[in-house]
Nucleic acid binder design. Sequence first.
DNA 1: CCAAAAGTGTTACAGCTACACCCATGT
DNA 2: ACATGGGTGTAGCTGTAACACTTTTGG
Lengths: 237, 237
Amino acid sequence: MFKYSSQTRVLVAVDCIIFGFDGTDYNLLMVNRGFSPEKEKWSLMGGFLKANESLDESANRILYELTGLENVFMEQMHTFSKPNRDPIERVVGVVYMALIDIKKYQHQPHDDFQARWFRMDQIPKLIFDHQEMVEMAFNRLRSKAAFHPILFELLPEKFTLPKLQTLYEKLFATKIDKRNFTRKLLSSKIIQKIEEKDKTASKKGAFYYTLNPSTYKENFQRTLNLIPKSEIPSLIE
Amino acid sequence: MFKYSSQTRVLVAVDCIIFGFDGTDYNLLMVNRGFSPEKEKWSLMGGFLKANESLDESANRILYELTGLENVFMEQMHTFSKPNRDPIERVVGVVYMALIDIKKYQHQPHDDFQARWFRMDQIPKLIFDHQEMVEMAFNRLRSKAAFHPILFELLPEKFTLPKLQTLYEKLFATKIDKRNFTRKLLSSKIIQKIEEKDKTASKKGAFYYTLNPSTYKENFQRTLNLIPKSEIPSLIE
DNA sequence: CCAAAAGTGTTACAGCTACACCCATGT
DNA sequence: ACATGGGTGTAGCTGTAACACTTTTGG
């Protein structure tokens, strides 16, 4: 087989930034590295691109191997490439962002990987340029969520309006008026009430809602304006 | 030096999607490949990532080598990775999108590369997955331009309002009311009129405007809403 | 009965859209 | 003088933001 001659070949790593929401705060799923370099330190879930898989396949494989999860919302975000970002040898790092319902991964089966959730404000010092990756991912999440209803990926099938509102308030570090929030959301028709209440958070209980799958897809491109316009300029991307 | 053992190393190519605007249509700068595979066919400007450069540096080097241009608006867009996207050997392709003033590259110095502009609706069949890359880039440009004033990168320093409006109308394939367009734009303060007219397009002549550098940067994150809301849902990303 | 969270309507304002005519000038 | 493209103002409407009280129920 002919090859391109005299060109440098490098390793390609895939790193997954996995967001979860515990009802109060955003969390990140990290693993304790079992190998050098930086053994025993916390890092993103990652692995090397294999010979016969695409990056999407690789990211999904890595996520599956480490959490057992499949069919998760995940998309490619950015490729990092500083020549010496990995001290061992040159590695180009492709970062994926995933959003999962935090309850779907609770340390269960794969404890051998020593994965655990960290609240966004309590993330340990990370290896290499992983800190930078996380910051970019969180900003990207903010930009996307301002215009597309992706945050539902972080919630279980049934969720309450107060939980959903907290999700938005925490991401944009702002308070939202609950009457306006509810009205905009319901007028979009992307969620529907079910006759069942969550009583864990209050005595009165809050009604559960679920996504309306058809209108959800239709409205995915539509900008919902759930965030007051005055907050939008603070988005960085 | 220690290495990660038994992992696959691959070539990393950088491909630049370079948009220009000729006053009427969007154009793409393509090169006629002088080497196999697909010799003599049209392709994006590209090259391989070198041992000691980052992807950003590589993209800028490639652009400079092929056009002589520097300090151009360019950002990383997506990394393509189907295992057999290049028939010779495995190559992961990182795509950059650049926006340039079309007059800054007019076949001059580097004709040996046989680069030329193609109107977006007259792009020849491209090699590998370059067609897919171009489509993604154009969609991405649309999404970004809907909310950030990046299209100015396609214009010369002095430009007229009618030209600017055409730029938006072509990208979104829609007609915009010129009174509304002008009003929104001027109220944003990002451009300023200069007392000089372009008489090439009409007898009356249209006033030139320039970017107001300070307000331009300030307002870069602000959503201008130059495109009527009803058109926005058609954006795909 | 009280504390804590959920739920619900209205009004004022800002920003958007729709729309048509006059102006300047080269030929 | 006329054809061509450039420039300008208003009114109605829609959507957003601001705002406070009642309801429910577990303890």
